[in-house]
Amino acid sequence: MSCAKGWKRQTENTQVDYTPDNGEHFVRIAVDDSPDFDSPYTHLLDLEEQLGRLQDYRRVGLEENTFRDRPGALWDFTWTALPKDTEFPGPRRASEQAYLSRDGVEYVIYMSAPAADWATAKEQFDTILRSWRPPGAQ
Results as ranks from 00 to 15, higher is better:
residue 88 F to L: 07
residue 16 V to I: 15
residue 93 R to H: 12
residue 67 F to K: 01
residue 80 T to M: 12
residue 19 T to F: 04
residue 92 R to Y: 10
residue 20 P to N: 03
residue 95 S to Y: 11
residue 121 A to E: 07
residue 102 R to E: 15
residue 47 L to C: 02
residue 44 L to G: 06
residue 36 D to G: 14
residue 65 N to R: 10
residue 43 H to N: 10
residue 123 E to Q: 14
residue 81 A to N: 03
residue 31 V to K: 11
residue 37 F to Q: 07
residue 8 K to S: 15
residue 91 P to W: 05
residue 24 E to W: 07
residue 42 T to L: 09
residue 22 N to P: 02
residue 122 K to W: 06
residue 136 G to L: 09
residue 61 G to D: 15
residue 105 V to R: 10
residue 134 P to Y: 06
residue 66 T to Q: 13
residue 8 K to A: 15
residue 117 D to R: 15
residue 45 L to C: 06
residue 118 W to N: 13
residue 108 V to Y: 02
residue 86 T to S: 12
residue 52 G to D: 04
residue 129 L to W: 08
residue 100 L to M: 14
residue 84 K to M: 11
residue 52 G to V: 00
residue 113 A to M: 11
residue 46 D to K: 13
residue 22 N to C: 04
residue 80 T to P: 06
residue 71 P to L: 03
residue 80 T to V: 14
residue 73 A to H: 04
residue 9 R to F: 05
residue 24 E to C: 13
residue 89 P to E: 08
residue 32 D to A: 10
residue 87 E to T: 08
residue 6 G to R: 02
residue 96 E to P: 00
residue 101 S to E: 09
residue 81 A to F: 02
residue 128 I to K: 00
residue 67 F to L: 02
residue 19 T to H: 02
residue 17 D to T: 05
residue 36 D to C: 10
residue 61 G to Y: 02
